[in-house]
Amino acid sequence: MNGTTASGGALLEIEDLRVHFATPAGVAEVVNGVSLRIEAGTVHGLVGESGSGKSVTSRSVLGLLPRRSLVRRDGAVRFAGRDLFGLSEEEMGRDIRGRQIAMVFQDPMTALNPVMRIGHQIAMPLRLHKGLSRRQARDTAVELLRQVGIPHPEARLRAYPHELSGGQRQRVMIAIALSCDPQLLIADEPTTALDVTVQAQILDLFDRLCEERGLAILLVSHDLGLIAERCDEVSVMYAGRVVESGPAEAVFDAPEHPYTRLLEQARPRLENPPHTLLKTISGRPPRLVDLPPGCSFRDRCPRAGDDCAESFPPLTPSAPGRSVACLRPHDLLVPVAAGSPVSAAVPGGSA
């Protein structure tokens, strides 16, 4: 379901975001010039290998970064036209976090307070941001638990996090995130370590919330199948940069960037015979404290040429709604095939 803000612009706009951290080995360029837009009522996927900068990008929206190691945070993040980087910590806590933008973290066991009952943790934002009475907050908490599919919600209010299953804890996190009717939900690996049945239930819940509430979702994952099935738009990240973006269906049906194509070919497929070995991407991602000049993916890329070492290619429009950062992108008309070779003879480059 598509939508926009009242002013006609995107609900969330990230422009040229750069986040660098100090480490014992040097300054790590964790996010390097990321730009994306999310419309109201849509799901935007952020996908890539571990360490590609997905979580730091999503946490930057709410300013949830480790201040002690933060060396540099540049660029712009605008929510409904409001510059979030220009807000004080007090303004972020009072007006934005939990109220207009909520976040579901990867591990609910560490995100939830282990010594506080579930009911109290759901009621806190309701009383803080909405000014509800204790009774009103309790009744609303029961209804939220019922909406996210928690059985016997009245009894669960008195439970502690360790008394719930992993799927139930994740649903509690979603209930807390939805308690103040946010416009944007950031879900950072929300189904990691959950069985496939619970994963499907949580993702179906997200779909329903987008449809019923016009909720926008930034879905962070390394699972291409999940992103391809559940997202309207996708941004593929590698070494802190977006290397390809566009409608999820189009991007995964015919990837342009060699990295996206290799990721897609590495997906396990039901049609493969039993005991089929999974494809892998050769090599390792570059060290973020010592990024090579030129394209960060060139040492692992089967289509790289000498000119790929000169400068990192900018994200350039390649088709309506699609962009790619590559000097030798794959043909848009060539769909990905699980068993096909990735490379082809490329003038001026290697096969």
Rank of each mutant, 00 (worst) to 15 (best):
H152L: 00
Q201A: 14
D223Q: 03
E154T: 12
L203A: 08
I186A: 00
E154D: 15
P153C: 11
V198C: 13
H222L: 07
L209M: 13
A159Q: 13
A193K: 04
A193H: 01
S165G: 03
D181A: 15
E163C: 09
P161G: 02
E211M: 04
Q199A: 05
Y160M: 11
I150S: 07
I202Y: 15
R213S: 01
C210D: 05
A177L: 04
S165T: 08
Y160W: 11
S221Y: 10
L219A: 00
S221F: 05
R169E: 15
I174M: 11
Q168C: 12
G149D: 10
A193P: 04
R171V: 02
I150D: 00
D204A: 11
G167R: 14
G149C: 05
L157Y: 05
R169S: 07
P182M: 02
A155G: 00
T191M: 08
Q170G: 09
Q170K: 14
E163N: 10
I150W: 03
L215M: 07
L203K: 03
R156Q: 14
P151M: 10
L184K: 02
A177K: 11
V198M: 13
H162D: 08
R171Q: 07
E212D: 08
L224G: 01
E154Q: 15
A177I: 09
V198S: 11
P151F: 11
I202E: 13
Q168S: 05
R158M: 04
L203T: 07
T192S: 15
E189A: 12
E189N: 02
E154P: 06
T191S: 00
R213Y: 01
V196M: 07
E189H: 05
E212F: 01
R213A: 00
H162W: 09
P153Q: 04
G214H: 00
I150V: 06
G214R: 01
V172F: 11
D207H: 12
P161W: 10
L203N: 07
S221W: 06
D181M: 12
T197R: 11
I186L: 03
Q199H: 09
R156A: 10
A177S: 14
P151Y: 13
L203Y: 08
L178P: 12
A187I: 06
L185E: 02
A175V: 05
G167L: 13
C180S: 12
P190A: 06
L219H: 03
I176R: 11
E212G: 00
L184F: 10
D223G: 01
P153M: 08
H222K: 10
T197H: 06
L157K: 06
V220H: 09
A159W: 09
V172I: 15
Q168M: 15
L184R: 13
L205H: 09
R156N: 06
A193I: 09
S165I: 04
Q183E: 15
L218P: 11
S221I: 11
L184Q: 01
G166Q: 01
V196L: 15
L209K: 07
I150T: 01
G166L: 14
L164W: 12
D181L: 08
L164Q: 07
T192F: 12
T191K: 12
E212C: 01
R158A: 10
G149W: 08
R158E: 09
D181Y: 04
L218H: 14
A155N: 01
I176W: 13
E154M: 07
D223I: 01
A216V: 04
Q199P: 05
L215K: 02
H222N: 03
H152T: 13
Q199T: 05
Q168I: 08
